[in-house]
């Protein structure tokens, strides 16, 4: 074999996969076809490559059980679940299922800690307390004034009607003033 021929064969070796893929220009492909008709080295190279690929495909073909396949398809077409649900209950995969108990333990521990903390911590609402105290104090004051007016009304029946009415009027005005102080508007 001449050096030129060797060069051509080397070139074919580089392009053999593109030739198989029809990934060459029409002219180039035609040239190789013609070359293959007369070159035993290149035609046997092409043949060997095809044998290796086909034999591997034939010999190394495996399958999964039909029932397992059906189950996998069923799980694949299920509606998408929330990420947290996905995390807690992973779909299908064998190994991840073992992680479930661990995840459950983690979640359980965190939940227990949260409950214990919420139960042991004393919650105080200072704003609410101050407000209640203020209301209690003012309430007592107003109640005593109402009692005073009630007493005065009782006295009205007895005597000094006019005097008592004036007194009552004054007290009412005072009371209105007091209550204005607590107006929120």
């Amino acid at each position: 074999m001449s050096n030129d021929e060797k060069m051509i064969c080397k070139e074919f070796e580089n392009e053999v996969y593109l030739f198989m893929d029809n990934n060459l220009s029409m002219d180039r492909k035609e040239n190789w076809k013609q070359h293959l008709n007369k070159c035993k080295t290149c035609s046997s190279l092409l043949n060997e490559v095809e044998v290796v690929i086909n034999q591997t495909r034939e010999e190394l073909t495996d399958d999964i059980l039909e029932s397992k396949y059906d189950r996998m398809i069923e799980q694949a077409v299920q509606k998408k679940r929330f990420k947290i649900i996905e995390w807690l209950f992973p779909q299908g995969t064998v190994k991840e299922k073992y992680a479930f108990s661990l995840k459950l333990a983690v979640v359980g521990t965190l939940a227990t800690i949260a409950i214990v903390i919420s139960l042991t911590t004393q919650r105080t609402n200072t704003v609410k307390t101050i407000s209640n105290e203020l209301l209690d104090w003012e309430g007592k004051k107003i109640t005593s004034q109402i009692n005073e007016i009630k007493n005065t009304i009782n006295l009205i029946h007895e005597d000094n009607w006019d005097k008592q009415m004036i007194l009552l009027d004054q007290r009412m005005k005072n009371l209105e003033k007091e209550s204005d102080k607590f107006s929120f508007n």
């Binding site: 999964i64 996998m72 398809i73 694949a76 299908g92 995969t93």
Partner: peptide, 17 residues
């Protein structure tokens, strides 16, 4: 096989979605 089945299942899920 175990890993291959896991990968197969994941491929099914991704391709359906």
């Amino acid at each position: 096989r175990e890993d291959a089945e896991d990968l197969f299942q994941e491929t099914l899920i991704k391709s359906w979605r």
